[in-house]
């Protein structure tokens, strides 16, 4: 009888995790409907779902509003929240550090530098409409490669990667400051606005690009969930359990960087999701990355879409950039968790 009690507890937890994932999905789907009603054109939640299920190109006014204007923004919000959340969860996992996120590892500040370079100097790898995005994307990956390369000199450990990440963050921050110093005031304004983070620039094209990157990277990361679990016990233990530690860390870091780059190049830097969404999810469903990673994707999407919806309504008709809203929501929440978290949770 004792035998079934141990397994019962485990199976109960697994079921709890699955139910949480289903609930989060339901919240997200509801939020999509609500978010699509927000704006100057009045439309009800039921009409929104009817319009979405009817598909694009029905020619009605509601279809144009929902499909052409509101859905790209909503989908970009979901992708951004999911991608940044997953990136944070993976970085925290592979580095065994509760403070790891795309921000603290310098990746986001490199994106800002890339965007500044395009805005202020007009310099970049591709010309035209994607100049800023391509630069931000490229510099995000350059920063990740630099962090990894620097850490490799001393051996890839969580400590060396975090030290390298902090150095890279300061390097790109000061480079961005330098560009702002020499830029014209309009350019500086544009850079600052980019760095607020906004979903206002979303189109079906940017959504498609971000979605492709997400759909390519997410399965790769989730495939290594068990290995990331073992890493929680330390490099030595993970090694002795058959995990190719450096390999997993390279793929995790690469995947997290790609996820981050794929969204913030279009939205600008959006803070706190990458740090907070994994923690909230971990407190709810535990540290098993097979559930934590998809859960964080949903949680990140819910928080970001919620923050954007509040940002669009709280001072309407003025729209507050989502980057500002996530920090407003994120900081108190983070402090709340920090103050009341269970002892030894991390």
């Amino acid at each position: 009888m004792e035998q079934s009690r141990i397994l019962e507890g485990y199976i109960k937890r697994i079921h709890g995790r699955i139910i949480t994932l289903i609930l989060l999905t339901a919240v997200l789907l509801t939020l999509i409907g609500v978010a699509a009603t927000l704006g100057s054109y009045p439309i009800s939640v039921i009409e929104v779902y009817a319009t979405i299920f009817a598909g694009p190109g029905t020619g009605t006014e509601a279809a144009t509003i929902v499909w052409d204007y509101r859905l790209p923004r909503i989908l970009m919000g979901i992708l951004t929240g999911a991608a940044l959340g997953v990136a944070g969860a993976v970085m925290q996992g592979i580095l065994r550090n509760p403070l790891a996120s795309p921000f603290t590892l310098g990746i986001a500040s490199a994106a800002s530098f890339g965007a500044s370079l395009a805005i202020i100097l007009g310099a970049g790898v591709v010309a035209g409409g994607y100049l800023i995005a391509a630069n931000a994307f490229l510099f995000t990956l350059i920063a990740a490669a630099l962090v990894y390369g620097l850490a490799q000199v001393r051996g890839i450990t969580p400590e060396t990667m975090i030290m390298a990440g902090i150095a890279i963050m300061y390097l790109f921050s000061s480079l961005t400051s330098f560009l702002q110093y020499i830029g014209t005031s309009e350019d500086v304004h544009a850079v600052v606005f980019w760095m607020f983070g906004s979903l206002g620039r979303s189109t079906w094209e940017t959504v498609t690009i971000a979605a492709v990157i997400f759909l390519f990277t997410f399965p790769l990361i989730i495939f290594f969930a068990r290995s990331i679990n073992a890493l929680a016990a330390g490099d030595e233990t993970a090694t002795s359990l058959g995990v190719a530690v450096e390999h997993v860390r390279l793929i995790g870091m690469g995947g997290a960087s790609l996820l981050t780059a794929g969204v913030i190049c279009f939205t600008g830097t959006i803070g706190f999701i990458g740090l907070v969404a994994p923690h909230i999810t971990r407190m709810m469903i535990g540290g098993d990355n097979r559930f934590l990673i998809p859960g964080t994707a949903l949680m990140g999407a819910v928080i970001l879409l919620g923050a954007d919806s509040i940002g669009r309504t709280i001072m309407a008709p003025m729209i507050l950039p989502v980057g500002i809203m996530t920090a407003f929501l994120g900081v108190p929440f983070f402090l709340y968790l920090f103050l009341r978290r269970r002892r030894d949770y991390w």
Binding site: P98, A233, G287
Partner: peptide
Amino acid sequence: GAKIAAATVFDVVMMGRTPHMGW
């Protein structure tokens, strides 16, 4: 000495199966 974040005893013992099991 090493801490293991957000893992139950069952989860930790389950890690022992890592080389044998898939996802």
